[in-house]
Design a protein around this nucleic acid. Structure first.
Lengths: 261, 261
DNA sequence: AAGGGTTGTTGCGCTTGACGAAACGCAGTC
DNA sequence: GACTGCGTTTCGTCAAGCGCAACAACCCTT
């Protein structure tokens, strides 16, 4: 196969039609909703081709159309697959009931994240009781240096690994840590105290507290966080939340075999 | 195309290779982990075909292999897509058309409520066809122990959470459940039968039936109810309404990803 | 160590199945 | 009412994907 066209959205490896179909899923994930013509243009293929691929995806419930002759968006089949994906991760299985309890106790949203290729990958989320809820982070890659989860995961690395993932540190808010030296100091602090706090570092008005989850060997395999609007998580409240998050993370760690000699 | 083999797992509609690739995802969702040979047998295709499809899926991170030459399982790309899906999946938005249909079928008012800090918060309401209509509850906080919606939401909690929200139980009518023990029994009954009924418990002359709405993890995230004057919702009518409400709630749950496995 | 029996992986022709062009039905809209 | 946009359908063509078979690691048992 030769690269005749730039083909912007398609990686171009493997079975062509499958490759294009998966490209459609990615387009829909990015745009939220698109028409056949729009998708075809994005992939650089003919309308009819895009239509046939979309129809196949629709037969498997991976996409659905909004009206009888309307645009397309991602469907519930994706959620079923996602459920099966997390079901096999015993980390999520073990952590879920504890995360749910933590969400109930704090009234805020609980997230579980792992380290994946220089960023934090969010595996699971339990919504807090409040009507005001943040958007769903599950499946998203989030910068390590601007989140409480990320700092906990960084603190779990040794110095060599830490160095490897530190590239340029993007600025999200005035409070984002952007200097290598400051970040290293912050990571050392997290390591020492066993938890991390991030106030307005990723988004102004967003506060989060995170603690490490360890496996039987004591390695930090994941991070559990409570996050909510800064006006609800004031400095004194954070102190209470820290205790709860750390206790919950320790409980999960125990379930994963940590601390049993 | 002729049906040479039964081809059990594949629907057989649309673009063949895409259809097969998506079939692989479904196989992996079901088995959790499979080898190329196993997958090929399941789809009724040659090993090499299965391998190429799997490799394409892997390029998009939808599947990943356990070791360098190992079996395959669903990958993190699925989670990423799921994140984009739930971002667009609003409970109210998904439930709206179904609630409207339910209101049309029953002729009564349909409400959707979530749990919010020891009370039921009404998110949406679709008016029934009758001229006699209750006032609009949207945005109001309603006691959990005196409504069908509230009892469904209580039934979705574990025992610890249930205990936490049970304070003093206010009396609204002679039929309001006010004893902790009776309420616990009622909640247990709701849990078992999958729906709740409240007759004259909040207001004399007001009858309501509610069923739980679940997310992809099976958690009860909301409750959907049909309510109307008790003289229209007689005991026999309630039986029909129960079926309709439960069916509607299940349909909404499916749209939110519930029902895998 | 040597053997058979598994895996997952890779070239290679043949042909089937997916592609693009164009036409179609249906909504709005000027 | 012609026009323009959409999603959908049909159809002939040809290359893209398929099955075959050989390959390379890995387990077993011998």
């Amino acid at each position: 196969m030769v690269d005749t066209v730039p083909s912007p959205a398609v990686t171009g490896a493997g079975v062509q039609s499958v490759d294009r179909a998966l490209g459609i899923l990615e387009v829909l994930a990015r745009t939220g909703e698109s028409g056949v013509t729009e998708i075809a243009a994005e992939l650089g293929v003919h309308k009819s081709t895009a239509f046939r691929l979309v129809a196949t995806l629709e037969a498997h419930r991976l996409v659905e159309q909004t009206a009888d002759r309307g645009r397309y968006r991602l469907g519930v089949g994706i959620l079923r697959l996602a459920g099966a994906t997390t079901a096999r991760l015993d980390l999520v299985q073990e952590a879920r009931p504890i995360a749910r309890q933590l969400a109930a106790d704090t009234g805020e949203t609980v997230n579980i994240a792992v380290l994946a290729e220089s960023s934090a990958l969010y595996l699971d989320q339990v919504a807090g009781s409040s009507a005001l809820q943040p958007h769903n982070w599950v499946g998203q890659h989030i910068p390590l240096h601007a989140t409480s989860n990320g700092k906990v995961l960084l603190a779990g690395l040794d110095d060599a690994g830490l160095e490897a993932v530190l590239g340029t540190l993007a600025t999200y808010t005035p409070r984002t840590i952007t200097g290598h030296r400051e970040l290293r100091e912050e990571v050392a602090r997290v390591r020492e105290q066993g938890y991390a706090v991030a106030v307005d570092e990723l988004e102004v008005g967003l506060t989060a507290v995170a603690a490490p989850i360890r496996n039987a060997h004591g390695d930090v395999v994941a991070s559990m966080s409570v996050s909510g609007p800064s006006f609800r998580l004031t400095e004194e409240q954070v102190q209470d939340v820290v205790r709860l998050v750390v206790a919950a993370a320790v409980e999960v760690s125990h379930r994963l075999g940590w601390g049993h000699r």
